[in-house]
């Protein structure tokens, strides 16, 4: 594409700017609220600047969220589940694509059908089963369930990518006497990095922001996740939007910073991972 800055480019720049203002509006409000006292919220226009920065909102939100703990939990659950998901979906996609007979095709359809099952509709039995397996109040139990329920989508994406990898390299490895598992581990897995990066974004956002599963499975305060703790800031009987919105900022800022740092890799990852 040309690097020239033409009239057309200016037009596009203007359109995008307007869109971005619309996007920023809710964030602006969140920020302004988070720095105001309850009285000021009532008394002033939502767009007015805070008279003085009410930092107490942040300390309150920090405490109410039990921030370090819940952030650590969320991070641990998300990171472990995503790592496992990438490994397992790679294994499944590899055997499905290379196995290529009726059985493997059938299994593929079996997995794909799972994309359509919203886990909310199988919640009660999932919980009964989970409690028998000791998944309650168990971070690993929750990780297990995330892996199980997100696998279909991950396999769907992985398999799409796997089909584009040429067989030749693997065949050479077989001839050298490598077993399939060894081939997968040494040759195929490293080739999956681009699609793994793309999947990492998609899956980690889903798991990071999930609410129902940790809400129902993790009752121990030391195991609660950020989303669950956030919900207690918005109760039907008492909501302090200033503290609530300060909580939103606190819990979103780290992941936003992470995104800013990782942006290049994210985009690169998707570029290579989107089935090209």
């Amino acid at each position: 594409m040309s690097k020239k800055y033409t009239k057309g480019t200016f037009l596009i720049q203007s359109i995008v700017s307007v869109i971005v203002i619309f996007y920023l509006l809710p964030f602006l409000v969140v920020f302004l609220y988070a720095f105001k006292s309850p009285q000021e919220i009532i008394g002033s226009s939502p767009f007015s600047l805070p008279e003085k920065l009410e930092l107490v909102n942040f300390t309150q939100a920090f405490e109410a969220l039990n921030f370090f703990q819940s952030f650590g939990n969320t991070f641990f659950i998300t990171a472990s589940a995503v790592l496992l998901l990438i490994l397992l979906s790679g294994m499944a996609a590899y055997s499905i694509v290379r196995g290529g007979n009726k059985f493997f095709n059938g299994t593929y359809m079996f997995f794909i059908a799972g994309i359509m099952i919203p886990y909310q509709v199988i919640f009660v039995p999932m919980f009964v089963l989970g409690s028998n397996l000791g998944f309650i109040n168990n971070l690993f139990g929750v990780i297990f369930l995330y892996v199980g329920t997100s696998l279909p989508f991950a396999i769907f994406v992985m398999a799409g990518f796997m089909k584009t990898i040429p067989k030749e390299i693997e065949e050479a490895a077989f001839i050298d006497g490598c077993s399939i598992m060894r081939t997968f581990w040494i040759i195929v897995l490293p080739m999956l990095k681009p699609v793994a990066a793309a999947l990492t974004i998609i899956l980690s956002l889903q798991i990071w922001n999930d609410y129902l599963l940790p809400q129902l499975f993790l009752s121990d305060n030391s195991m609660k996740t950020l989303t669950v703790m956030q919900s207690t800031l918005f109760s039907a009987f008492e909501t302090n939007f200033n503290v609530g919105f300060a909580g939103i900022i606190l819990s979103s800022l780290p992941i936003l910073i992470l995104f800013l740092f990782m942006q290049k890799h994210f985009v690169k990852g998707i570029t290579m991972g989107s089935g090209k």
Binding site: F123, V124, F127, V128, G130, S131, I136, N137, F217, S219
Partner: peptide
Amino acid sequence: QTRIAGKQ
């Protein structure tokens, strides 16, 4: 309900 179902 889930706590009851899970005996928790």
